[in-house]
Design a binder for these strands. Structure first.
Lengths: 216, 216
DNA sequence: GTCAACCAGTTCTCTAGAGAACTAGACTTA
DNA sequence: TAAGTCTAGTTCTCTAGAGAACTGGTTGAC
């Protein structure tokens, strides 16, 4: 809970209405939560709900329970920038980047194989970080360890065939059909922070997204 | 362009600041556009950009050009409510609904087969409407003919196999693999207006979505 | 012990206005 | 003609405050 609008206005030497406008803006941005008669509270960053709600693998039997799949990191190393990543990062990118490979499992079965590309030198420290200690979600790590907030992402879904690596990790036959998700994630300034390519086992794959005004 | 905030406040007998707050809210809802030094203008409903941006079939050669596929309506009739539609519409639904079938083509090739379920009696008039005169997009028709605004939608993508009908319309072999999109669309009050099931040819299928703050 | 009444603290809505910032068009001048 | 200047009209930001609406806790009556 933060101080009341009265106190804040006094403290910062602005009029009450001005402080109220400022607070309202922060509410609109999803950073604060105000309750009449109670007070103003800081909110968890909204991307947790916004970006992961749809990226869950849903149980086929009960599709309303979203699950965050377990994460198993395979590798994390510096590689030259692949051309499609170069295109996403833009001209101001370095010539190398970090490539992180991981498998996401659900009930012990591999569901998704992810290749995550991250900017250098921004994420240089990631190479020396203990990957075992990371949780299953990357964006909270970005925020806590690097101070980088992911505020928007564009996903593109299509169908493709497995690569040698993804087939192996997903326990599929070589060149089996897979779901392909390509994600470009940005910070609030619109700078592309992450390029991600995901291959998923098609038979249990389910991707959910809600656009527009979220109904209460 | 609508009258200035001064005039409106006077006309409605409220204070200037109050009218400003009201106008700001309409701007936030995407209904108005204000330009300092110029005036306030009514905006085209935002869903046009929000909901259709991602629902485009992108050219494989040039994925940055979105295309609205041509629409060919096959049928439009009253049918008993299928159970999954019943679940989406909720308990207050009538026992029957409108089912609209159509194919969406691109460069003459069928890309998507859609089954659209709409509430009765809300859309009763649709049965007597000349379907030939409708454009390729349904939501503008909902707004203009029925005064119903679609403001949010939840899409769920998965993989499945073609039904007899969808295989025929998409010119695929029976039980061929297809992309499946299930959409639930709502009005601003959160009432479910539309249930839609789409089958798509997998090989050129591409679905793009951006969540979070849209970068300028 | 239970329930109702009260109260201090908070946000919400609205009033009344001043001055800055900006725009589009009309006007002036070289 | 072309470029700069002015001006009326507009939105934007901020001040100063009153009263309503609501919440969570305390007090008091039974």
């Amino acid at each position: 809970m933060i101080p009341s609008e009265n106190r804040l206005a006094e403290e910062y030497g602005v009029a009450l209405a001005t402080m109220r406008m400022a607070l309202k803006q922060l509410v609109d941005e999803g950073l604060l939560d105000r309750r009449r008669g109670t007070g103003t509270f800081v909110k968890q960053p909204a991307f947790r709900a916004d970006l992961f709600r749809f990226f869950h693998v849903h149980d086929v039997d009960d599709p309303d329970i979203p699950v965050i799949p377990e994460s198993r990191i395979l590798s994390c190393q510096e590689v030259p920038l692949p051309p499609e990543v170069q295109k996403a990062f833009g001209a101001d990118s370095a010539s190398h980047c970090i490539k992180l490979e991981r498998v996401r499992l659900w009930s012990g079965e591999p569901m998704l194989f992810e290749e995550v590309y991250l900017r250098l030198p921004d994420f240089e420290e990631l190479l020396s970080l203990n990957l075992k200690t990371m949780g299953p979600l990357l964006y909270p790590v970005f925020l806590e360890k690097f101070g980088i907030l992911i505020s928007s992402a564009t996903d593109e879904l299509s169908f493709g065939i497995a690569t040698e690596t993804s087939a192996k990790q997903l326990e599929l036959a070589s060149e089996a059909p897979v779901a392909v998700i390509q994600r470009i994630a940005r910070n609030p300034a619109g700078r592309v922070i992450e390029f991600r390519r995901v291959h998923g086992r098609p038979e249990r794959f389910r991707y959910r997204v809600t656009l527009g005004d979220q109904p209460a």
